[in-house]
């Protein structure tokens, strides 16, 4: 005679990763509201106290500056949401920023060598995607931890960039770069439009198409996805390939913005990662989303912009980013403890 099977444990892809968030208004909802309120308060705070912050010129400027990190953060979000959001064992692409650097170098070098624009574009996008495919194969076929595989890859890619540029800035001009750097439409710059288009495309695919549903399922519980007939391996491989392609795409934007390839793009990695991770607190499910990632990127953008306008040293910026991550992580963890 069985009386009761006690204690309900929620299924999770790994120990401790998903805990009960209690019913109705869950901890996740509270975190989300607090996070959004914080963003709004910081924005309003700057708008009220800082001259020149709340002007259309400044706001558009920040959005334009956020285009490249925003697109890279979306690529990172894609890899995380498909590979699972456990940062240690789940999906992550640490070669993303280095890949952008290499792709930019390839583009600039190809143009300098007199390649035609289409050929240079094809070579750049192809190379970026190749890096992603190798990452994906290492993760899916060989089963290497994504953290390690993409870490090694970032070394390789960073080295290749140096080999190609010998650590110098390579100037580049071409018609399409001019359009991207100087063009505007309806008062918005080309870069802003690109960000809008890329985000829209990403949102449609991720949030309103069957493949999007399957990508999230793959990240949320690979065995369940597999049992439902989803080709888990192919989607994970695809996520790294698309991330690599996106890095190359961002590289072209970056070359257009600077009219040159640039060194040291690898340093962008951590803030891209921070944005993608921060973005998860804006989602009900605690997963990376397009909107959440964009909010996080813009938030970081406005924060450093506000500091700049206030005349605060830019030395503070990364510290504030760090404190933000800490606050978010701590809030999520405390919430989870209360809920679970």
């Amino acid at each position: 005679m069985t009386l009761a099977q006690t204690e309900i444990t929620l299924p999770g892809p790994g120990p401790g990763r998903v805990r009960a968030w209690t019913a109705t208004l869950s901890g996740g909802d509270v975190t989300r509201l607090v996070a959004l309120a914080t963003v709004a308060l910081v924005f309003i705070g700057f708008a009220v106290t800082t001259r020149g912050f709340f002007t259309s010129w400044n706001i558009l400027n920040v959005i334009e500056q956020s285009a490249i990190p925003g697109i890279l953060a979306l690529a990172m979000a894609l890899v995380i949401l498909t590979g699972g959001s456990d940062v240690q064992t789940g999906g992550i692409d640490l070669s993303l920023a280095a890949n952008m650097g290499l792709s930019a170098a390839i583009f600039a070098v190809a143009l300098r060598a007199g390649w035609g624009e289409p050929a240079a574009l094809a070579a750049t996008l192809g190379a970026g995607m190749l890096v992603g495919v190798v990452n994906g194969l290492a993760v899916v076929r060989l089963g290497i931890l994504p953290l390690l595989a993409t870490l090694a890859m970032s070394n390789i890619v960073g080295g290749l960039e140096l080999v190609l540029t010998e650590n110098t800035v390579i100037p580049a001009t071409s018609p399409i770069l001019n359009v991207l750097s100087a063009g505007s439409f309806l008062g918005l710059s080309s870069l802003t439009w690109v960000l809008i288009l890329v985000s829209t495309l990403a949102a449609v695919i991720l949030h309103a198409s069957p493949p999007g549903l399957r990508l999230y399922a793959t990240g949320g519980h690979p065995e369940a996805a597999r049992a439902a007939g989803v080709s888990v391996g192919r989607l994970i491989l695809g996520s790294y390939a698309v991330a690599g392609f996106t890095a190359a795409f961002a590289a072209i934007l970056s070359v257009s913005r600077l009219s040159a390839s640039s060194t040291g793009t690898g340093e962008m990695l951590l803030s891209i990662l921070a944005a993608a991770l921060l973005g998860t607190v804006f989602s009900r499910r605690g997963v990376p989303t397009v909107a959440g990632t964009l909010i996080a990127v813009l938030f970081i953008g406005f924060l450093s912009n506000g500091f700049q306008l206030k005349g605060l040293s830019s030395n503070w910026v990364s510290g504030v980013q760090g404190a933000l991550i800490l606050a978010v992580v701590a809030a999520t963890a405390l919430n989870r403890r209360k809920g679970g």
Partner: peptide, 12 residues
Amino acid sequence: LATLALLFIGQS
């Protein structure tokens, strides 16, 4: 995540 935050703060 905790040490990532510390990495940022350490830079500042």
